[in-house]
Write a protein that binds this DNA or RNA. Structure first.
Lengths: 203, 203, 203, 203
DNA sequence: AATGAATGAGCATTCATTCAT
DNA sequence: TATGAATGAATGCTCATTCAT
């Protein structure tokens, strides 16, 4: 019985969160009304405040919980690989396919995560940078193994790599691309970063 | 006399625009109050409406006028160069140095230009894509000249390149980096895109 | 319990409406502030928007609901009478006594109902003309019965009659006359319309 | 030369007044903007304040000056007549034809003169009542001469008579009736007040 | 006198949050 | 827990009026 109740509770928490992702993606954080989220989650307005402190807290929770899942997922995949080049390919492929599968969440991340806002910045600096730092760690490893160029600065490369993926996936919000397109794009970006634009065939 | 008046008028228009860039960058479009902009521009609230239709119109004008200047500027620099590799280096260097010089404007572009909003999206599709398309044009030219790899898709590469620059410059909002850092970052990103991460010395 | 809530709700709706009548009568529609109405009704400003769409909607509701009541009331009284002369006397007496009892409402009707405004004009042409047309119907009946002069145009007479009552009651807004005065005035106006000014005793 | 200037000045004063009548009639006093009036009068906004104290002062001036003209006009016509019955007929005929000729002014009088407003009320009690009192004076004279019924109260009859004319002319704002209609309406109203509704042929 | 750019007080409306039930 | 009616702070925009030219 208590289990049932607990399930019910977590259901509501989850329902509100998913509703919020949808609504935030649809009209942006500022234009989204608590009543929109409540309606989408089929609860009363007041109920939301039993699960979240404020409208802003919902946004933060989305990053905390949903982005957290993404990060853990990507991390575990990369851990199974040892070759740095392959690792970056996996990161790219995985990031893009997630952005594609979770369009609404992607949009919320891409838009709201950039808001100039102290709390938001703090968040980026903690939880999110952990994710992006996966890239610089891989690059450093590749450099140590003599596979990657040593004159590349990992701190810059990580942002360049992440920025590429981010911008490349932005056009996908509507309509959704095929999984082939996603894979091909991941390959292109990874290849670009591995080999560069210059044609070495001649040399 | 008429000159004086004219100057005054354009001063106000410009002052309000610059004030808005500052305020929008500082607290974001939604949190910015018209009275904040008015105070920053040292005019009365109502005066703003002599020069702009609405708060939203100010944001659009920033893109229309300020981004327009940037685009024209970068374009004219690139037109003086014929080598595609150099052209991309110039694009990178110029984009980053502008983002660095106009921190507030950069922030407004990076944040507000992403807002889920029909008009904003339209804007991206017209004026802004012109800018990003410079990159794909250069890439196609390089491929035609046999300098760039032909298996790279210009449409993906342009976004990857722009996304890299965008993300790389994001961290600069505070505090401002030295011009050396800016140049070095531009070189790094361009080099990454030219040569890739892989160390070819061995081969 | 549900009764209590229902009562409370309808109380609020009614309270706001009555408060609005008072405030509109006191300072006119345009000078009336939403907060004035809210204060008078002892609710928060925002509460008003739970019951009405806009300030203008309140005004329309006053006519729709309050004037509707008046019309129904007068109509039912007249239906109980068959003699056209008596019917006009009843109309006059009833109209005036209502204007006297509901001073604020009377003032709102007399002032706001005349506003040059498309919606207001439409309203006059539908709900209100129904009321005034009672008079022409009575006159036509009287003419058919040979009691009233046939050279009188009912369309003109109805407006003349209504205009007389309207103007005659305008002076009552402050201070209120005794019910004797009201009755006497009704009798005078009705008598004027029945017999005219000319002294026939002599002839 | 000074005459020319004077003429110019009075031209502007008059132009502004006529423009205001037009604009007030078109959108009502509250919705009318000073800039609307200025544009209609082909002067700058600020110029209006050289001739009038405030927006409200313009409205008052309309009544003071324009209504004044009407009153003087009607008075002089009535002064040429000695028979009370004819005098009322002339009053009716004249009032209606003026309301018809000056539609905009009529609308302003009918609407704005009713606004609940201290100054407006004062105005009604002074300048305007002078006009309406013409009617009661005539009635008293008729009673003294034994032509009019002595049981009619002049104070009530004057308002009834004026109210009739006022309401009867309200429908004329658009489109304008022919002068025949105006005359016929005047005759009807006067006749109604002279002879009443009741058919005396039988007696 | 005339102009019209500048001012800033004023107000309807929205919506996150609370709280009695 | 859940509800949703009630709250009231917050703000973009309008426009009568002023005043430097």
């Amino acid at each position: 019985m208590s289990k049932k109740t607990e399930t019910k509770e977590s259901n509501k928490h989850e329902r509100i969160l998913q509703a919020a992702i949808k609504v935030f993606a649809g009209k942006g954080f500022f234009h989204a009304r608590i009543s929109d989220i409540a309606k989408e989650a089929r609860v009363a307005d007041g109920t939301i405040y039993l699960y979240f402190e404020s409208k802003y807290d919902i946004l933060l929770s989305i990053f905390e919980e949903e982005v957290g899942k993404l990060i853990d997922d990507v991390k575990s995949r990369i851990d199974q690989e040892t070759n740095p080049q392959r690792m970056l390919e996996i990161f790219a492929s995985h990031h893009l396919s997630m952005m594609n599968r979770k369009t609404s969440l992607a949009e919320v991340i891409q838009i709201e995560l950039r808001q100039t806002n102290q709390k938001m910045k703090e968040y980026r600096n903690t939880r999110f940078s952990e994710y992006v730092n996966l890239v610089s760690t891989i690059i450093k490893q590749g450099q140590a193994e003599g596979i990657f160029r040593k004159d590349v600065k990992p701190g810059i490369a990580k942002r360049a790599f992440f920025g590429s993926l981010d911008e490349v996936s932005r056009v996908w919000t509507t309509p959704a691309p095929t999984s082939y397109e996603v894979e091909e794009t991941a390959r292109q970006v990874a290849s670009l970063f591995m080999n560069g634009l210059l044609d070495k065939k001649v040399s």
